[in-house]
Each structure stands twice: as structure tokens, then as C-alpha cells.
Amino acid sequence: MSHAMDVLPYLVAAYVFLTGCYGLATSRHLIHAVGCLAVCQSATYILLLAVGYRAGGTAPVFSDIEPGSRPVVDPVVQALTLTDIVVGATVTALLLALVLQIAKRHGTVDPDELRELRG
């Protein structure tokens, strides 16, 4: 029972990642595909935060707790998660801009109809 809890958050991250992959592969709409990529990326947030969790820990912010009085979660992975979110947002913005261009130039946003390259 307790052993299941030891790995459950990691398994949730894997599940979310695979769900995003399934959505990406079966997507019929490019904006939907961009959303699926965001789902894949959120799996990495879960994984990072799960790796950094410490039992009974609180946020690593010492403006209202005495340093050393309580265990805190790992701040390094939290900073990495922040970086992850920022990069994810920029990638989403760029991809959506590309989708807009594709919709204008090709008149479709179905990936299966975008077969050949056109100038």
C-alpha cells in the first residue's frame, strides 16, 4: 500500500505524458495538436515537482517561517518547473502563430490534408 504511494506521482506523470502523445498522434486539428503538446509538457511539471517533494515539506520561502524550523521542498526543481512553464508558453505561442499562417496559406488545419509542401 505505502509502496504504491511511493511511485504513484511518477506514474501519474507518465500517464499524462502518454495521453498527450496519443492526442498528438491522432489529432485531426492543428490547434488541438498544440494543446496536446501542452499536455505532454505538463507531465514534466508533475514529474519535476514529484521529484522535489519532501514529506511534510512546505514552500521554500522564508519570509514567514523560521529557517530550519520546518522541512522545505526542493527549490531547485521548482525553479526548473518555472523555466519549463516559460519555455512551454513561448513554444505554444510560436506554434499557434505557425498554425495561423498554415490556415491562411493552405486553407486547412487538418494535418492529414497537409501532404505536400507548397511555396
Partner: peptide
Amino acid sequence: CLDLPRFGGRSHPYGDRAV
């Protein structure tokens, strides 16, 4: 996942040094 350190473990060397 089964090989990762246990969830909520006490050992976070980088975190401790960062703090």
C-alpha cells in the same frame, strides 16, 4: 518510475545547498 528515489524522501542534497 520504479527505480526513481522514493516520493517525499528526505535526501535532497541540491535543495539543501540552494537553501
